[in-house]
């Protein structure tokens, strides 16, 4: 396999490298914005599960347009893992299930709350859909929980969601906190992918709600208005987002795109830092363990 084959297989992978994004997911946030204008008037934004940092890159680029004074723009990126630094982004290497992390964010905003919280976090998938969906839902709920600590009333929350068998439980949960909940799939997300994004607008928690990190938020159970099977399932509206003329992530494009007259291979912007399989990679460099 030549090194151009990945560029051919995935147009957004290639464009991300050419435009300097750390991951192709940058396009997803850009396309969500095209549809929902989530960056309008936003000065303080939180990027949860930020590594490798492509969404933070988008935030810095877009939010600076909202003000003449770049110092007003505050972006906090939170992740458990280390992430290569980005100018204009405050990094917190911490756990989103901890109050201390929430406090650190608020401190960074000088006591003010965030206008926008985004979360593109996803677990390493196991291959068992139900576990993957569960872990993803817990990640989303953890993100929602910390969001309830840091988001201003009326604010916007955007998060990755796996549209699996129990996604309606999450929809009903999110609907408790936000007036508008829609699910959207950017054109840069593949048709075959289970991922989509929930765009939760107008944060409006229940009147008696007190944010707490003592107990994790658990997802809902099936009930009368959200049945396991039947006509009463809690399904939120779907939108495809991204310009109709945008590239399509399932389409195979030639290396010479329309309107281009040359192609040059580019290396990825930022490689992975310290993956769990690092140790065995180092070990297998020295010995061949498959020869037993």
């Amino acid at each position: 396999m030549g090194k151009t084959s990945k560029d051919k297989r995935d147009i957004y992978y290639r464009l991300a490298k050419e435009e300097g994004w750390r991951a192709r997911s940058a396009f997803k946030l850009l396309q969500i914005n095209e549809e929902y204008n989530i960056f309008d008037g936003v000065l303080r934004a939180v990027d949860l599960c930020a590594a490798p940092g492509s969404w933070s890159q988008v935030l810095t680029k877009k939010l600076r347009k909202n003000t003449d004074n770049a110092d007003e723009v505050k972006i906090v990126a939170v992740d458990l893992q280390a992430m290569a630094s980005l100018p204009g982004v405050k990094q917190i290497q911490g756990d989103i299930t901890k109050v201390s992390t929430a406090n650190e964010i608020i401190k960074e905003f000088e006591g003010l709350k965030a206008d926008l919280v985004v979360c593109d976090g996803a677990p390493d998938v196991t291959g068992l859909h139900d576990i993957d969906e569960y872990i993803q839902s817990q990640l989303l709920l953890a993100a929602l929980n910390i969001t309830t600590h840091v988001l201003k009333t009326g604010g916007v929350f955007v998060a990755k969601i796996f549209r699996g068998k129990d996604v309606t439980l999450l929809y009903s949960q999110l609907k408790l906190f936000f007036e508008f909940v829609t699910v959207s799939k950017p054109r840069s997300s593949r048709n075959s992918s289970i991922e989509a994004f929930v765009i939760c607008q107008n944060y409006n928690p229940p009147p008696d709600y007190v944010p707490t990190m003592v107990n994790p938020l658990l997802d809902h159970k099936y009930c009368d208005f959200n049945q396991f099977t039947g006509t009463n399932r809690f399904i939120v509206p779907f939108n495809a987002c991204g310009d109709l003329s945008a590239y399509d992530s399932d389409t195979s494009y030639p290396l010479l795109l329309e309107g281009q007259d040359s192609y040059e291979y580019k290396e990825p912007v930022q490689g992975p830092i310290d993956p769990p399989y690092k140790e065995i990679l180092d070990k297998t460099k020295a010995i061949q363990i498959n020869k037993v």
Partner: peptide, 14 residues
Amino acid sequence: NWRDCSIDFDPETR
């Protein structure tokens, strides 16, 4: 061999 091959610009089709 692959080193001597020029880049094939056509898309990988499925």
